[in-house]
Amino acid sequence: MTHDGYHISADEATEALRSRNADVFRNIYNAYSEELYLLAYRWVKDHDLAKEVVQGLFTHLWEKGPEITITGNVRHYLYRAVTNRSINELKRRARHVSEEALQWQADSASMHDLTDHLLLQKEVMRLVQTLAPRCREIFLLSRFDGLEPAEIAEKLGIALNTVYFQLAVALKHLRTHLLNGKKLE
């Protein structure tokens, strides 16, 4: 029976870790690693460290597999584990741990909101890669680097109107593909 990683139950996951079932383990990795990377990034704000946190978590799950029991929802279990690891890494490196991370509530309502948010981010990341290069550059300068439209115009030596135009193209592209939005005029 083939399973995609999203439908593996806590019992099946625990059993797979116990018996070191590499196929199931890989399915779990394929299903969740990207989301976990985005979640770790949310806490540590450093993409190298975020990746390290995710890789560290899966290495731990594999090595300590026989001693681990996953309960409840597998995704939520992994969210909690990656959040704890992120906070620990920040502390270990004497970096600032945000109040948001410390106060993070792991109740099921916020877990569902978080899942929606991370899945949306995952799609945003994928779709941004499909934008035309100039459009992508402008969108990333705005969203990732946090530059104001006027700053982007100055940095790239282009008209402010062009910046707005390109940002709108990018946002429409995302909306059309992600939210099944109707074409905007």
Binding site: N30, S33, Y41, Q121, V124, V128, Q129, R143, R175, L178
Partner: peptide
Amino acid sequence: LWEAAAGVPPVSFDK
């Protein structure tokens, strides 16, 4: 979408 895009890392995760 605008806000979701603000929190994404600059480098994507290659599974």
